[in-house]
Simulated scan of single mutants.
Amino acid sequence: MRVLAAVLVAAALPASAFASSRLLYLEAQGVAGYSDQEDSLIWHSESAEDVMQKSSVGFDFIQRLSGETGDFGLLAVQARLAYDPDAEDEIEPQLYNAYYKHKAGWADIWAGHSRPAFGLSSVLDSHALLLPTLAMHGFGFDRDWGLGASRDFAWGNLSASLTTGSGMPLRFEGNYLASLRAAKGILSQDNWELGFSVGAGETLHTMGYEVMHEEPQPFAMAGADFTYLWDNYEARFEAMGGTNRDEDAYALFARLGMNLLDEGRLKLEAQPEYSKIGEHEGFRFSAGPAWQLSDTLTLRAMGRYDEHDDELRAVLQVYYYSKVL
């Protein structure tokens, strides 16, 4: 709440007060689908307890801070008000990004709610997408509260973080997660990147804002990820193994995409995935198109088969994202 209050104050002040630039976007989405397991309409892309994706409206705010020598910091907040009639709380406030990033010269340092330095999800922004990464299925956290640092080199990137290991909620029950990721290659220049990650700590089993188990559980995992871009094709792979929730855990993941039409406005993706945490294991296959109808409006669809839950589901999303400031 303090971070959000600071952002609202910053937004209300004139730009001259900061010698900076700011961006404000309006975000809105409508989500609906069908599950053959539930034999009914659903209003979420994952589970009703999870945060993504649900019908929602919100904002994405970025404040760049600068001085005589240039930019020295960035403040970012992304928040939504989500609606899901299947959830315990039909209307749920969601705070997604909420961090300050400082350019220290030797590294970029962040504090708040951001991406921990673990796995493919640390470099792949999925906040608007229907297809989930492994972090959405219990292997790490898409966002977490804490501190992190990242530095780019000529050969790639090195990043580290120390976070609460609680994901969306901010909880202190003796839980923590220390993570490190080293990447070879620069995707924007080389069209490929190979990353290696390790993470260890005592983490909470959370699903969205719901805490599934009150006691922190051991987490010690290592993983490798690889991204390759070629012409209008994209390929992403990830493998993980170790201990998760005090159980043996493994995961394999691939996402294959093809961009069509002018400027890649139509994307077709397929995603096979296998995961195991203790006795909970199974294969998932997801696929679907994303069609950018305009600069502000995108239509996405996803079909998924989940072997563990023996479920087929289909989800449709209409996503709106527009600059207002």
Rank of each mutant, 00 (worst) to 15 (best):
L26K: 03
G112F: 03
V77K: 13
A128W: 10
S21R: 07
A224S: 15
G33E: 04
H308W: 04
Y96G: 08
Q317K: 13
D84P: 06
K276A: 13
G185I: 00
L297W: 08
D310H: 12
L124H: 12
G58Y: 03
R115Q: 12
G119A: 02
P132Q: 00
W43Y: 15
G140Q: 11
R265V: 02
Y233D: 02
T203C: 03
D89C: 00
L130H: 10
F196L: 13
F253P: 07
V324M: 09
S40K: 14
Y228S: 06
R304G: 01
D225Q: 09
V7G: 14
D108S: 10
A111N: 04
K101M: 09
A111H: 03
T164A: 11
V123E: 14
V123P: 10
L120F: 12
A28Y: 05
H205R: 14
Q63I: 01
V9M: 05
Q189C: 01
G105Q: 07
W291C: 08
A15D: 14
D125A: 13
A182G: 15
D142I: 11
W192S: 12
W106Y: 15
T206K: 04
L293V: 15
S294I: 11
R143F: 11
D295M: 02
L8S: 08
K184T: 13
H280F: 06
S294Q: 11
K276W: 03
E215P: 00
L252E: 12
D248I: 08
L129S: 10
P216A: 07
Q78V: 11
Q189G: 03
L325I: 09
G156A: 08
G156D: 03
P14F: 03
E92S: 08
G138K: 09
D86P: 01
F118K: 07
K103I: 08
I42G: 01
L177H: 04
S197H: 03
L261F: 07
A224L: 15
L147C: 12
D309K: 08
D50L: 03
S126M: 04
S114N: 13
L170S: 15
G156Q: 02
M258Q: 10
